[in-house]
Protein backbone atom coordinates (compact mmCIF):
# COMPACT_ATOMS: atom_id res chain seq x y z
CA UNK A 1 0.00 0.00 0.00
CA UNK A 2 1.44 3.32 -1.05
CA UNK A 3 0.62 5.07 2.19
CA UNK A 4 2.44 2.61 4.41
CA UNK A 5 5.38 2.49 2.00
CA UNK A 6 5.88 6.21 2.25
CA UNK A 7 5.45 6.04 5.99
CA UNK A 8 8.24 3.46 6.19
CA UNK A 9 10.48 5.55 4.00
CA UNK A 10 9.85 8.62 6.10
CA UNK A 11 10.58 6.74 9.27
CA UNK A 12 13.91 5.74 7.81
CA UNK A 13 14.69 9.36 7.14
CA UNK A 14 13.47 10.79 10.40
CA UNK A 15 12.44 8.93 13.48
CA UNK A 16 12.49 11.62 16.11
CA UNK A 17 10.27 14.68 15.67
CA UNK A 18 10.74 17.67 17.96
CA UNK A 19 8.17 20.37 18.67
CA UNK A 20 9.97 22.64 16.23
CA UNK A 21 9.16 20.17 13.45
CA UNK A 22 5.49 21.04 13.89
CA UNK A 23 6.01 24.82 14.05
CA UNK A 24 5.42 26.50 10.73
CA UNK A 25 7.53 29.38 9.47
CA UNK A 26 4.68 31.76 10.17
CA UNK A 27 4.79 33.10 13.71
CA UNK A 28 1.33 33.07 15.35
CA UNK A 29 -0.47 36.36 14.77
CA UNK A 30 -2.91 36.04 17.60
CA UNK A 31 -3.11 38.93 20.02
CA UNK A 32 -0.63 39.05 22.81
CA UNK A 33 -1.85 36.85 25.66
CA UNK A 34 -4.39 34.96 23.56
CA UNK A 35 -5.44 31.54 24.86
CA UNK A 36 -5.15 30.09 21.37
CA UNK A 37 -1.39 29.86 21.80
CA UNK A 38 -1.81 27.38 24.66
CA UNK A 39 -4.04 25.21 22.46
CA UNK A 40 -1.56 25.32 19.59
CA UNK A 41 1.25 24.32 21.94
CA UNK A 42 -0.79 21.44 23.34
CA UNK A 43 -1.42 20.20 19.80
CA UNK A 44 2.24 20.43 18.90
CA UNK A 45 3.20 18.61 22.08
CA UNK A 46 0.74 15.86 21.25
CA UNK A 47 2.16 15.51 17.74
CA UNK A 48 5.67 15.29 19.11
CA UNK A 49 4.83 12.84 21.88
CA UNK A 50 2.85 10.63 19.49
CA UNK A 51 5.51 11.18 16.79
CA UNK A 52 2.87 11.92 14.20
CA UNK A 53 4.56 12.43 10.82
CA UNK A 54 3.70 15.97 9.65
CA UNK A 55 2.75 14.61 6.22
CA UNK A 56 0.22 12.31 7.90
CA UNK A 57 -1.37 15.04 9.99
CA UNK A 58 -4.00 17.51 8.87
CA UNK A 59 -5.76 20.27 10.71
CA UNK A 60 -8.97 21.69 9.32
CA UNK A 61 -10.63 24.92 10.33
CA UNK A 62 -13.43 27.29 9.41
CA UNK A 63 -13.25 31.04 9.90
CA UNK A 64 -12.32 32.98 13.00
CA UNK A 65 -9.36 33.58 15.28
CA UNK A 66 -9.16 29.89 16.20
CA UNK A 67 -9.28 28.95 12.56
CA UNK A 68 -5.85 30.44 11.96
CA UNK A 69 -4.36 27.44 13.70
CA UNK A 70 -3.63 25.36 10.54
CA UNK A 71 -1.30 28.17 9.37
CA UNK A 72 0.88 27.69 12.41
CA UNK A 73 1.14 23.90 12.19
CA UNK A 74 3.84 22.50 9.98
CA UNK A 75 1.50 19.83 8.64
CA UNK A 76 -1.27 19.68 6.10
CA UNK A 77 -3.96 22.24 6.77
CA UNK A 78 -7.24 23.37 5.30
CA UNK A 79 -8.48 26.86 6.23
CA UNK A 80 -12.04 26.38 5.08
CA UNK A 81 -15.14 28.52 5.02
CA UNK A 82 -17.30 29.68 7.87
CA UNK A 83 -18.92 26.82 9.76
CA UNK A 84 -17.83 24.20 7.23
CA UNK A 85 -14.75 22.78 8.91
CA UNK A 86 -16.48 19.53 9.90
CA UNK A 87 -17.82 18.47 6.47
CA UNK A 88 -14.38 19.18 4.98
CA UNK A 89 -12.73 17.11 7.69
CA UNK A 90 -15.22 14.29 7.12
CA UNK A 91 -14.41 14.34 3.42
CA UNK A 92 -10.70 14.12 4.17
CA UNK A 93 -11.17 11.31 6.67
CA UNK A 94 -13.34 9.15 4.46
CA UNK A 95 -10.99 9.60 1.51
CA UNK A 96 -7.75 9.33 3.48
CA UNK A 97 -8.37 7.22 6.59
CA UNK A 98 -4.61 7.06 7.17
CA UNK A 99 -4.43 10.74 8.10
CA UNK A 100 -4.72 12.08 11.64
CA UNK A 101 -7.46 14.68 11.41
CA UNK A 102 -7.83 17.57 13.83
CA UNK A 103 -10.62 20.12 13.52
CA UNK A 104 -10.39 23.55 15.14
CA UNK A 105 -13.38 25.84 15.35
CA UNK A 106 -14.44 28.86 17.34
CA UNK A 107 -17.73 29.12 19.21
CA UNK A 108 -19.29 31.20 16.45
CA UNK A 109 -17.96 28.93 13.73
CA UNK A 110 -19.21 25.71 15.34
CA UNK A 111 -22.29 26.66 17.33
CA UNK A 112 -23.83 29.26 15.04
CA UNK A 113 -23.34 28.99 11.29
CA UNK A 114 -21.88 25.50 11.57
CA UNK A 115 -24.39 24.13 14.09
CA UNK A 116 -26.07 21.73 11.64
CA UNK A 117 -22.74 20.21 10.62
CA UNK A 118 -21.73 19.98 14.26
CA UNK A 119 -24.76 17.87 15.23
CA UNK A 120 -24.39 15.53 12.28
CA UNK A 121 -20.68 15.16 12.74
CA UNK A 122 -21.33 14.01 16.32
CA UNK A 123 -23.89 11.53 15.00
CA UNK A 124 -21.54 10.23 12.26
CA UNK A 125 -18.84 9.73 14.91
CA UNK A 126 -15.96 9.65 12.43
CA UNK A 127 -12.50 9.16 13.86
CA UNK A 128 -11.15 12.66 14.39
CA UNK A 129 -10.40 15.15 17.15
CA UNK A 130 -12.54 18.26 17.32
CA UNK A 131 -11.39 21.29 19.30
CA UNK A 132 -13.94 23.99 20.06
CA UNK A 133 -12.09 27.17 21.05
CA UNK A 134 -14.80 28.82 23.12
CA UNK A 135 -13.99 32.40 24.11
CA UNK A 136 -17.66 33.43 24.18
CA UNK A 137 -17.21 36.11 21.53
CA UNK A 138 -16.54 36.77 17.86
CA UNK A 139 -13.01 38.12 18.27
CA UNK A 140 -11.76 38.28 14.70
CA UNK A 141 -14.48 40.76 13.78
CA UNK A 142 -13.85 42.81 16.95
CA UNK A 143 -16.52 41.74 19.42
CA UNK A 144 -19.94 40.56 18.48
CA UNK A 145 -22.08 38.30 20.63
CA UNK A 146 -21.71 34.59 19.84
CA UNK A 147 -24.11 31.75 20.79
CA UNK A 148 -22.08 31.11 23.94
CA UNK A 149 -21.85 34.76 25.06
CA UNK A 150 -23.17 35.18 28.60
CA UNK A 151 -26.55 36.80 29.19
CA UNK A 152 -26.26 40.59 29.38
CA UNK A 153 -22.91 40.80 27.59
CA UNK A 154 -22.55 44.12 25.78
CA UNK A 155 -21.06 43.89 22.34
CA UNK A 156 -21.26 45.63 18.98
CA UNK A 157 -24.35 43.63 18.05
CA UNK A 158 -25.87 43.70 21.52
CA UNK A 159 -25.17 47.23 22.80
CA UNK A 160 -27.78 46.84 25.54
CA UNK A 161 -26.60 43.38 26.54
CA UNK A 162 -27.23 39.91 25.12
CA UNK A 163 -30.89 39.10 25.58
CA UNK A 164 -30.72 35.30 25.43
CA UNK A 165 -29.14 32.77 27.72
CA UNK A 166 -26.05 31.18 26.19
CA UNK A 167 -26.02 27.84 24.45
CA UNK A 168 -24.11 25.14 26.34
CA UNK A 169 -22.04 23.19 23.78
CA UNK A 170 -21.45 20.35 26.26
CA UNK A 171 -25.10 19.56 26.98
CA UNK A 172 -25.95 19.93 23.30
CA UNK A 173 -23.23 17.49 22.27
CA UNK A 174 -24.11 15.03 24.99
CA UNK A 175 -27.69 15.07 23.75
CA UNK A 176 -26.89 13.95 20.20
CA UNK A 177 -27.27 10.29 19.23
CA UNK A 178 -24.04 8.32 18.81
CA UNK A 179 -21.98 10.77 20.87
CA UNK A 180 -18.84 8.98 21.97
CA UNK A 181 -16.40 11.43 23.59
CA UNK A 182 -17.01 14.81 25.25
CA UNK A 183 -14.48 16.68 27.35
CA UNK A 184 -13.88 20.17 28.63
CA UNK A 185 -10.53 21.90 29.08
CA UNK A 186 -9.34 25.41 29.86
CA UNK A 187 -6.39 27.14 28.29
CA UNK A 188 -5.01 28.41 31.59
CA UNK A 189 -4.21 24.88 32.85
CA UNK A 190 -2.07 23.83 29.89
CA UNK A 191 -1.00 20.51 31.40
CA UNK A 192 -4.59 19.28 31.72
CA UNK A 193 -5.41 20.63 28.29
CA UNK A 194 -2.60 18.52 26.88
CA UNK A 195 -3.69 15.40 28.77
CA UNK A 196 -7.29 15.77 27.62
CA UNK A 197 -6.15 16.28 24.05
CA UNK A 198 -4.05 13.16 24.25
CA UNK A 199 -6.98 11.11 25.59
CA UNK A 200 -9.14 12.48 22.79
CA UNK A 201 -6.56 11.57 20.18
CA UNK A 202 -6.49 7.97 21.40
CA UNK A 203 -10.26 7.68 21.39
CA UNK A 204 -11.74 5.83 18.41
CA UNK A 205 -14.52 8.00 17.06
CA UNK A 206 -15.22 11.72 17.14
CA UNK A 207 -13.77 13.25 20.26
CA UNK A 208 -15.20 16.65 21.07
CA UNK A 209 -13.28 18.97 23.38
CA UNK A 210 -14.68 22.29 24.41
CA UNK A 211 -11.78 24.50 25.44
CA UNK A 212 -12.66 27.60 27.41
CA UNK A 213 -10.25 30.19 26.17
CA UNK A 214 -9.47 33.71 27.27
CA UNK A 215 -9.70 36.57 24.79
CA UNK A 216 -7.53 39.34 26.30
CA UNK A 217 -8.89 42.02 23.99
CA UNK A 218 -12.63 41.55 23.68
CA UNK A 219 -13.57 39.45 26.73
CA UNK A 220 -10.82 40.66 28.97
CA UNK A 221 -12.12 39.60 32.39
CA UNK A 222 -14.54 36.85 31.35
CA UNK A 223 -12.75 34.01 33.17
CA UNK A 224 -10.87 36.00 35.82
CA UNK A 225 -12.94 34.53 38.65
CA UNK A 226 -11.93 31.01 37.69
CA UNK A 227 -8.32 31.85 36.81
CA UNK A 228 -7.80 33.49 40.19
CA UNK A 229 -9.79 31.08 42.31
CA UNK A 230 -8.72 27.46 41.67
CA UNK A 231 -11.42 26.18 44.02
CA UNK A 232 -13.97 27.05 41.33
CA UNK A 233 -12.36 24.59 38.93
CA UNK A 234 -13.63 21.02 39.34
CA UNK A 235 -11.10 18.51 38.05
CA UNK A 236 -12.62 15.22 36.92
CA UNK A 237 -10.38 12.23 37.53
CA UNK A 238 -10.81 8.53 36.97
CA UNK A 239 -8.69 5.45 36.71
CA UNK A 240 -7.30 5.90 33.21
CA UNK A 241 -8.09 9.61 32.94
CA UNK A 242 -6.28 12.72 34.03
CA UNK A 243 -3.34 12.62 36.38
CA UNK A 244 -2.49 15.89 38.06
CA UNK A 245 1.16 16.69 38.68
CA UNK A 246 1.87 17.18 42.40
CA UNK A 247 2.37 20.94 42.11
CA UNK A 248 -0.90 21.34 40.18
CA UNK A 249 -2.67 19.02 42.60
CA UNK A 250 -1.74 21.38 45.41
CA UNK A 251 -3.35 24.26 43.55
CA UNK A 252 -6.44 22.50 42.20
CA UNK A 253 -7.83 20.69 45.22
CA UNK A 254 -11.42 20.57 44.02
CA UNK A 255 -11.37 17.13 42.38
CA UNK A 256 -14.10 14.59 41.65
CA UNK A 257 -13.77 10.99 40.62
CA UNK A 258 -16.07 10.59 37.68
CA UNK A 259 -17.02 7.53 35.64
CA UNK A 260 -16.92 8.66 32.01
CA UNK A 261 -19.57 6.11 31.04
CA UNK A 262 -22.09 7.71 33.40
CA UNK A 263 -24.13 9.87 30.99
CA UNK A 264 -26.47 11.10 33.70
CA UNK A 265 -23.63 12.51 35.82
CA UNK A 266 -21.95 13.82 32.67
CA UNK A 267 -25.07 15.86 31.86
CA UNK A 268 -25.24 17.14 35.42
CA UNK A 269 -21.58 18.19 35.32
CA UNK A 270 -22.00 19.79 31.91
CA UNK A 271 -24.85 21.92 33.27
CA UNK A 272 -22.92 22.87 36.42
CA UNK A 273 -23.13 26.57 37.32
CA UNK A 274 -20.51 28.52 39.21
CA UNK A 275 -17.83 25.88 38.79
CA UNK A 276 -16.06 24.81 35.61
CA UNK A 277 -15.61 21.06 35.24
CA UNK A 278 -12.34 20.11 33.55
CA UNK A 279 -11.80 16.61 32.27
CA UNK A 280 -13.54 13.86 30.32
CA UNK A 281 -17.28 14.04 30.85
CA UNK A 282 -18.32 11.17 28.61
CA UNK A 283 -16.44 8.46 26.77
CA UNK A 284 -17.88 5.36 25.10
CA UNK A 285 -15.47 3.47 22.85
CA UNK A 286 -18.19 1.13 21.59
CA UNK A 287 -20.16 3.61 19.48
CA UNK A 288 -19.90 2.66 15.77
CA UNK A 289 -17.97 4.98 13.46
CA UNK A 290 -19.41 5.98 10.08
CA UNK A 291 -16.03 5.83 8.36
CA UNK A 292 -15.58 2.23 9.46
CA UNK A 293 -19.12 1.23 8.50
CA UNK A 294 -18.76 2.69 5.03
CA UNK A 295 -15.14 1.82 4.40
CA UNK A 296 -14.60 0.31 0.97
CA UNK A 297 -13.14 -3.10 0.44
CA UNK A 298 -10.27 -1.76 -1.60
CA UNK A 299 -8.22 1.27 -0.58
CA UNK A 300 -8.33 4.16 -3.02
CA UNK A 301 -4.75 4.00 -4.21
CA UNK A 302 -3.74 6.11 -7.24
CA UNK A 303 -3.20 2.91 -9.29
CA UNK A 304 -6.70 1.69 -8.50
CA UNK A 305 -8.20 5.06 -9.41
CA UNK A 306 -6.40 5.03 -12.75
CA UNK A 307 -7.55 1.49 -13.51
CA UNK A 308 -11.18 2.19 -12.66
CA UNK A 309 -11.18 5.43 -14.66
CA UNK A 310 -9.65 3.69 -17.67
CA UNK A 311 -12.29 0.99 -17.48
CA UNK A 312 -15.00 3.63 -17.48
CA UNK A 313 -13.42 5.54 -20.40
CA UNK A 314 -13.05 2.33 -22.39
CA UNK A 315 -16.79 1.84 -22.23
CA UNK A 316 -17.39 4.96 -24.32
CA UNK A 317 -14.17 4.91 -26.38
CA UNK A 318 -14.28 4.91 -30.20
CA UNK A 319 -11.75 2.43 -31.51
CA UNK A 320 -10.29 1.73 -34.98
CA UNK A 321 -11.29 -1.59 -36.45
CA UNK A 322 -9.76 -4.46 -34.53
CA UNK A 323 -8.25 -2.27 -31.80
CA UNK A 324 -11.08 -2.95 -29.37
CA UNK A 325 -10.53 -6.64 -29.75
CA UNK A 326 -6.83 -6.20 -28.90
CA UNK A 327 -7.69 -4.22 -25.80
CA UNK A 328 -10.23 -6.87 -24.91
CA UNK A 329 -7.54 -9.49 -25.15
Amino acid sequence: MTASMSQCLMQMVQTDYAISDYQSEIAPRWCSGCGDTAILTAMQRLCRDEQLPPEKTVSVSGIGCASRLPHYMNAYGFHGIHGRALPIAEGIKIRRPDLHVFVTMGDGDCCSIGAAHWLHAIRYNMNMTVLLHDNNVYGLTKKQASPTSPHGMKSNTTPFGATLNPLNPLTVTLGVSNVSFVAQAVDWIPDLLYQILRQAYHHKGLSFIRILQRCPNFMEHRFDDWVRDPSKMRILTHGDGLRLAPDLSRVYKNQETHDPLNMERALALAALEGEIPVGILYRNPNVPCYDELRAGERPNTPALVETVLNEEFDKVGIWPDGAAAQVGE
Binding site: S32, T37, P190, D191, V251
Partner: peptide, 14 residues
Protein backbone atom coordinates in the same frame (compact mmCIF):
# COMPACT_ATOMS: atom_id res chain seq x y z
CA UNK B 1 8.20 30.95 36.93
CA UNK B 2 5.54 28.36 37.60
CA UNK B 3 6.45 26.70 34.34
CA UNK B 4 3.73 24.03 34.48
CA UNK B 5 1.08 26.75 34.31
CA UNK B 6 2.58 28.63 31.37
CA UNK B 7 0.18 29.07 28.45
CA UNK B 8 2.87 29.91 25.84
CA UNK B 9 1.35 33.31 25.19
CA UNK B 10 4.75 34.84 24.20
CA UNK B 11 4.27 37.88 26.45
CA UNK B 12 7.46 37.33 28.44
CA UNK B 13 9.62 36.13 25.56
CA UNK B 14 8.68 39.27 23.70
Amino acid sequence: IETARCTTCNECTQ
